[in-house]
Computed example of a mutant assay.
Amino acid sequence: MPPTNSPTLRQRRLGTELRKLRERAGLSSTAAAARFGFQQTRMSMIEAGRYAVSADRVRVMARSYSCLDDKLVDALAAMTGRRKRGWWDEYREHLPVGFADLAELEHHACGIRACLVIHIPGLLQTLDHARAVIQGAAPPLHAFEVEHRLSHRMKRQAILYSDNPVPYTATIHEAALRMEFGGTATARGQLKHLIEMSEMGNVTIRVIPFAGGGTFPGTGQSFDYVLGPVQQLDTVQLDAAPGCQCADADAELAKYRAVVDRMELSSLDPAKSRDFIHGLLRSL
Rank of each mutant, 00 (worst) to 15 (best):
S6F: 03
Y168N: 08
V58H: 02
G49K: 00
A258D: 14
C244I: 07
G228E: 01
L194C: 14
L76V: 03
Q221G: 04
E199N: 15
L253G: 03
E145R: 09
L18M: 01
I195C: 09
G213D: 04
E252C: 08
D163F: 06
A103G: 14
H193T: 13
G49Q: 00
A175T: 14
P96E: 06
R274E: 14
K20N: 03
E199V: 12
T219R: 13
W88C: 00
A247G: 11
V259F: 04
M197V: 12
C110H: 15
L141E: 04
L265M: 10
T169L: 08
D128I: 13
T4W: 01
D234K: 01
R12W: 02
Y91T: 06
T204S: 12
R113P: 07
M43H: 06
S222G: 15
V117K: 09
S267A: 15
T16I: 03
T30W: 00
G136W: 12
P229L: 08
D56F: 03
R113I: 10
I172Y: 00
K71V: 07
H107V: 09
I118P: 07
Y225S: 04
A103C: 08
T41M: 01
F36C: 05
A187E: 03
S222A: 15
R153E: 02
I172G: 00
M197F: 14
L141G: 05
Q245Y: 10
D248E: 15
Q11T: 02
E196R: 12
V60T: 14
F210P: 13
H107P: 06
W88G: 00
R274G: 07
P167C: 02
A25I: 06
Q237F: 06
E147Y: 09
F210Y: 15
S222L: 06
A77Q: 10
L76K: 04
I172T: 04
I118E: 15
E17F: 00
R82S: 06
L14R: 07
D56N: 09
R282V: 11
V259P: 07
G122N: 11
R42F: 01
L105R: 14
